[in-house]
Computed example of a mutant assay.
Amino acid sequence: MKPILTDEQLVTQLSQSSKPAFEEIYNRYWYKLFCISYHQTGSKEEAEELVHDLFESLWNRRLESNIKHLSSYLVISLKYLITNLVKSRITWRKYQEYVLLNKMQEISSTEDNVQFNDLSAAIDRAMKKLPAKTSRVFQLSRFENQSVKSIAKELHISEKAVEYHITRSLKLLQDDLWIYQTDN
């Protein structure tokens, strides 16, 4: 039976490129990190990918890192990766909103009011396909310009739920309104 190494011993061995030390760190912390990641993302695939990225980074930076408390280091590093994922989601959602609203403005500024009226009717039909709460969240966000925080407070739901409903609305609108998109 091999001796159980402390985190400090594992970090020392890792800095010397010990693959068995890396494997022990992985085995010791993978599940805990996966649970944290899954709780934050709600997606098994994203959680696994984030934990994989964390361990890949740990191995790639093994010679330059100065880890004092392994458990804390891993959890904080994972939370940093999760934060970056959330920021990228927000950026992507903002981009989708920009494209959608830009297309709406292009059509409204053209002389062809029939197309604009068709688009308005298509938006109304798409909004009616949404569940009531999702539609309400989108209306408060996009048509009444309320913040995520104020919508969450008004509807008694979490900010994460508000973001989910907005993303869901945008996806449906994008899918339903694809015919109005142009190549330029």
Rank of each mutant, 00 (worst) to 15 (best):
I4N: 02
L5K: 06
T6D: 14
D7E: 00
E8N: 12
T12H: 00
T12K: 01
S15G: 03
S17R: 01
S17I: 00
S17E: 00
A21P: 13
E23A: 08
E23V: 15
E24N: 07
Y31N: 13
F34I: 03
Y38W: 13
Y38E: 11
H39F: 14
H39S: 14
G42P: 04
E45I: 06
E46N: 01
E48C: 10
L50K: 01
V51T: 05
D53P: 00
N60K: 14
R61D: 14
R62F: 08
H69E: 07
H69L: 02
H69N: 03
S71N: 07
S72E: 12
Y73D: 11
L74M: 15
S77M: 15
K79A: 08
Y80T: 02
L81Y: 00
I82N: 12
N84L: 09
T91C: 00
W92C: 15
R93Q: 00
R93A: 01
L101F: 12
L101R: 07
N102A: 12
M104R: 13
E106L: 04
E106A: 02
E106D: 03
I107A: 15
I107V: 10
S109V: 09
E111P: 07
V114A: 14
N117W: 02
D124G: 02
R125F: 06
A132Y: 12
A132E: 11
T134N: 15
F138W: 04
Q139W: 14
Q139Y: 11
N145I: 15
N145P: 08
N145G: 07
Q146E: 09
K149V: 01
S150P: 05
S150F: 08
I151H: 13
K153L: 03
K153C: 00
H156E: 11
H156W: 15
K160E: 04
E163S: 03
E163T: 05
Y164L: 10
Y164P: 11
H165Q: 08
H165L: 07
I166G: 15
I166C: 09
L173K: 08
Q174V: 12
Q174Y: 06
D175R: 01
I179C: 08
I179N: 14
D183M: 15
D183P: 10
